Computed example of a mutant assay.
Amino acid sequence: MVNVEEFAKRLNIIMDFYQLSAALLADKIDVQRSSISHLLSGRNKPSLEFVLKILKTFPEVELYWLLNGVGNFPKKQTLGSIQNPPTLFSNEKKITVEKTFPIKTIEENSKEIERIVIFFKDGSFKNYTS
């Protein structure tokens, strides 16, 4: 079941990310402006058609993130192929991840880190592998 208030927060994150007003978002995904207003106010739940329009128009949006906050926005990219560090959004805070793999510990027998997992307060997590 989709939490309408949390869905509205994620919809606001998408609008901020793409620098869109509610009216521009409605025009871009071809829905009535009142539909966006009702979703943002929590009056209505999102329809399947609405969700599919968001996913089709904005490929950086993950379905599970949009519906229940699990996953990432924008979509996760492979760290090994990125020139600039990615920007991830979690709990409406901007987090920058620096590319620092592989990392070695300073010990007699140096060990290489296999993965790093970051857990967020909302129950989601981000997994980084070298």
Rank of each mutant, 00 (worst) to 15 (best):
M1N: 05
V2Y: 02
V4S: 11
F7S: 00
F7K: 00
F7H: 01
A8Q: 11
K9L: 08
R10F: 12
R10A: 09
L11S: 07
N12K: 06
I13F: 05
I14G: 01
M15N: 09
Y18P: 07
Q19I: 06
L20Q: 08
S21Q: 14
A22W: 00
A23D: 11
L25H: 11
A26L: 08
A26V: 04
K28M: 14
I29R: 08
Q32F: 02
R33E: 10
I36K: 10
I36V: 15
H38D: 11
S41F: 09
R43G: 02
P46H: 05
P46T: 05
L48W: 00
E49Q: 14
F50T: 03
F50Q: 00
L52S: 01
K53L: 06
L55T: 01
K56S: 04
T57H: 08
T57N: 09
P59H: 13
E60V: 00
V61Q: 08
V61A: 09
E62M: 03
E62V: 03
L63Q: 07
L66E: 14
L66M: 12
G69L: 06
G69R: 03
V70P: 00
G71P: 09
G71M: 07
F73E: 08
P74K: 03
P74A: 00
K76S: 09
S81V: 05
S81F: 13
Q83P: 01
N84I: 14
P85R: 06
T87Y: 00
F89W: 15
S90Q: 05
K93H: 09
I95P: 00
I95V: 15
T96F: 12
T96E: 13
K99S: 04
K99Y: 01
P102K: 07
I103S: 06
I103L: 13
K104V: 14
T105W: 03
E107I: 09
E108I: 13
N109I: 13
S110N: 09
S110A: 11
K111P: 02
E112H: 05
E112C: 01
I113N: 06
I116F: 13
F119S: 07
G123T: 06
F125S: 15
K126L: 10
T129W: 05
S130T: 12
